[in-house]
Design a binder for these strands. Structure first.
Lengths: 216, 216
DNA sequence: GCAGTAGTAGTGGTTTACCACTGATTTTGC
DNA sequence: GCAAAATCAGTGGTAAACCACTACTACTGC
């Protein structure tokens, strides 16, 4: 299969899921003018190759590393490189963060081969490319401030996490209030909010779900 | 490449990330005796195929659907099917939940092709297979959390276990009394005894310790 | 037959959690 | 610098949990 450009586009992959790397390589294999020149699972492994690739496909969730930060670092050290974020994260906050940090494209991992190739071509040509579903997500977000989106793991605030831990450690609301130098009613308010966020009806469900979601 | 078994193992994939599906298909492509017969992104899409596959590779985070629940549903409706969880979630709570819901294997998505094949073979042969890193995670967890649990696992009576389950399922004492056709005070008595046996001071500690001791 | 355990049930409390509101102040994100 | 989120705090009430007792019955094992 032949692409418009005559020059071969050198693509690098940084993703800690080997299955994903394999999937991308297979998808791009049929295209003569795109070549996967390196695939790495960590920042250290990809660094030596950065100077020899045109486009980097970058995941956000890289085990202990943060793809959002890496995007900025790579763009700072290698300004000529184009970065397409390829991730499972559909939250608008991540899309915005990546674009703010210099990403040239954003695709969800349910991308089709066609769209992946389109994205690579567009970004290589200097355009910005967002996947169809990415655009949909952005539009949906701007229309209705959909806070919950598809957050599978509820996100608690710093204070809520603090109080949740104390609840699980068997402290009563009054004890927590004294410990944190806040009033009883404040603790009760937080407690209600935690319950709601965790989809629980009472203390039992709250603790159960907290452990289930790995928040404890 | 030839596997031990003569019969072709029919594999199905349920994952909402097409790249992942593609990666698995590629990885399994080289093996004659394993065949990916279907790949779906939603529960509805996979349902018609369940009767014709031996092993299902199942993700946990499926957009709006919950893989943990689906595992139980599939096992209930198709008891002969083997399920291997293939996911990014490394939390022990998810591993336990999947195994409790009947999963036969658990792998993280950074699995190698070799290990994926090993897992499929083992599970097809009736064994349970957990990935190396999955095992490491479980060991790490048990070292961190279960210091005393080896020494002392509280023994609850049949009735106490019954009531504990209902408490964890967010039922109030009154609701439990009605459900079991016993009086409120009986439930309260049992509840006090459970608390004492689990070394807990209140509902939060009771649920926490019940899960810690593996009673939930 | 008797001790031990499990299950049941009661009285009469006190303490805590749950809940629906409202609203102020501070911090954070664009 | 504005808007949103987070944090803090209150009223006033109901529901539920917590607690210390006692005590009957049925079953189990020696």
């Amino acid at each position: 299969m032949k692409l418009q450009s005559d020059k071969t586009i050198r693509v690098g992959i940084l993703d800690d899921h080997r299955i994903v790397i394999q999937g991308i390589q297979t998808a791009l294999n049929d295209f003569d003018n795109v070549s996967v020149v390196c695939a790495a699972e960590t920042k250290e492994d990809i660094l030596p190759y950065l100077e020899n690739i045109d486009i980097l496909l970058l995941d956000i969730n890289l085990g202990h590393e943060d793809g959002v930060m890496l995007c900025k670092q790579f763009k700072d050290s290698h300004s000529e490189i184009k970065i397409i974020c390829l991730t499972s994260f559909t939250q608008v906050s991540f899309i915005k963060a990546m674009l703010r940090n210099g990403a040239d494209g954003y695709l969800f991992k349910n991308v089709t081969t066609d769209e992946l190739i389109n994205a690579i071509q567009a970004v290589y040509a200097g355009e910005r490319y967002l996947g169809n579903e990415v655009n949909e997500e952005l539009i949906k977000y701007s229309l209705e401030h959909n806070r919950q989106s598809h957050a599978f793991i509820p996100k608690l605030t710093r204070r809520e996490n603090e109080i949740l831990s104390l609840i699980i450690d068997e402290f009563t609301n009054q004890e927590i209030a004294s410990k944190l130098f806040i009033s009883l009613s404040t603790v009760e308010t937080h407690r209600m909010n935690i319950c709601a966020k965790l989809g629980a009806k009472n203390t039992a469900g709250m603790v159960r779900n907290a452990i289930k979601f790995g928040l404890a």
